[in-house]
Amino acid sequence: MGNRILIVDDAAFMRMMIKDILTKNGFEVVGEAGDGAEAVEKYKELNPDLVTMDITMPEMDGITSLKKIKDMDPDAKIVMCSAMGQQAMVIEAIQAGAKDFIVKPFQADRVIEAIKKTLS
């Protein structure tokens, strides 16, 4: 049974990298979004088991999007993705309800570990 995952990142190559890591490990990527506003819409539409969410994006950032998704679905499982040196934002994201975070550049085993831990 593949867990259904929504990938949110404004960089297409980052979405591709995450998607590649996830599909190789038996997860089903049900959708992708390029910004936080699109992420909220896709979440409503697809109801994924988990979301990987970039923090820094145009339109609506990942933390705002995280809060909106948590308002709709308090049980939403969201793993934040951030570049190095965004500790304050990561803390804010965890306080807002993110389950874990992964740091870019991604290491495949860390991505899978965070996702398995969050889904279990």
Rank of each mutant, 00 (worst) to 15 (best):
F13C: 01
M14W: 12
M14C: 07
R15W: 06
M16I: 01
M16K: 10
M16P: 00
M16S: 07
I18H: 11
I18G: 04
K19V: 06
K19N: 11
D20R: 14
D20F: 12
D20A: 09
L22D: 00
T23C: 04
T23V: 05
T23G: 01
T23M: 05
T23Q: 09
T23N: 09
K24P: 03
N25G: 06
N25H: 15
G26T: 07
V29C: 07
V30F: 11
G31I: 04
E32L: 02
E32K: 06
E32Y: 06
A33P: 02
D35V: 05
D35I: 12
D35K: 10
G36D: 00
A37Y: 15
E38D: 10
E38C: 06
E38T: 08
E38L: 07
A39R: 08
V40I: 11
V40Q: 12
E41C: 08
K42H: 14
Y43N: 00
K44Y: 13
K44M: 10
K44S: 10
E45M: 15
E45S: 14
L46T: 03
N47G: 04
P48S: 08
P48G: 05
P48M: 04
D49L: 02
D49C: 01
L50I: 01
L50A: 10
V51E: 05
V51L: 03
T52H: 14
T52Q: 08
M53G: 01
M53S: 06
D54V: 01
D54P: 08
D54M: 07
I55A: 03
I55H: 10
I55C: 00
I55V: 09
M57C: 15
P58M: 10
E59N: 11
E59L: 06
M60Y: 13
M60S: 06
D61S: 14
D61A: 13
G62M: 09
G62L: 08
I63K: 09
T64M: 06
T64R: 12
L66P: 02
K67A: 08
K67N: 09
K68A: 11
I69R: 03
I69S: 03
K70A: 03
K70E: 02
D71S: 13
M72T: 00
P74N: 15
P74C: 11
D75R: 00
A76L: 08
K77S: 04
V79Q: 03
M80Q: 14
M80P: 05
M80R: 15
C81T: 14
C81W: 12
S82N: 05
S82R: 05
M84W: 13
G85W: 10
Q87K: 13
Q87L: 12
V90Y: 15
V90E: 12
I91N: 11
E92N: 11
E92M: 03
A93V: 02
I94H: 01
I94R: 06
Q95V: 13
Q95M: 15
Q95P: 05
A96F: 12
A96P: 01
G97L: 07
G97A: 11
A98Y: 07
A98E: 05
A98S: 10
A98N: 11
K99S: 03
D100K: 04
D100W: 07
I102V: 15
I102G: 15
I102P: 05
I102M: 15
V103N: 09
V103H: 13
F106D: 00
F106T: 00
A108I: 04
